[in-house]
């Protein structure tokens, strides 16, 4: 898969989801932490923000050094934004909008998540 391509892909919103991919059971995801889902060759970081009772998904690729690591990052909150900090150099990204909160890296792509029958679903366009 071409790494650069994923980084520039348009974010998916709830309304334009075409496919809800059934990723894994809820309890496979650490409390207040993330794990990585493989979907058609794409790596998606999925976060179980237990404390807020919410779920987020974004590309696993950190645009700083193009490494597939974001799912192993620590999550937290920066003002209004739920965020993830990259484990390599602590770039932080909003999990809502994908924007880089502590620098001016490209925004990351975010994906909608829904939970049904204790399963985590991620929304894709194709």
């Amino acid at each position: 898969m071409d790494i650069k391509e994923l980084n520039t892909q348009a974010a998916v919103s709830f309304d334009n989801v075409k496919i809800w991919y059934k990723a894994a059971a809820v309890d496979k995801f650490p409390i207040n932490g993330g794990a990585c889902v493989l979907y058609k060759g794409k790596q998606i970081a999925v976060f179980n923000f237990t404390r807020q009772g919410s779920w987020y998904a974004c590309q696993n690729l950190c645009p700083h050094k193009m490494e597939m690591v974001l799912s192993r990052g620590m999550i937290g909150q920066d003002g209004e934004h739920p965020k993830v900090a990259c484990p390599l150099h602590k770039s932080t990204f909003s999990l809502k909008t994908g924007e880089n909160l502590n620098g001016d890296l490209n925004a990351i792509t975010t994906y909608p998540v829904k939970i049904e029958d204790n399963f985590v679903y991620i929304g894709f366009l194709e």
């Binding site: 650490p30 207040n32 932490g33 690591v69 192993r72 620590m74 999550i75 484990p87 390599l88």
Partner: peptide
């Protein structure tokens, strides 16, 4: 494990 710094979380230092 999810409140640990990146290296502690997996008990190893992450590399490039």
């Amino acid at each position: 494990e999810t409140i640990q710094d990146s290296n502690d979380r997996y008990l190893a230092n992450i590399q490039r």
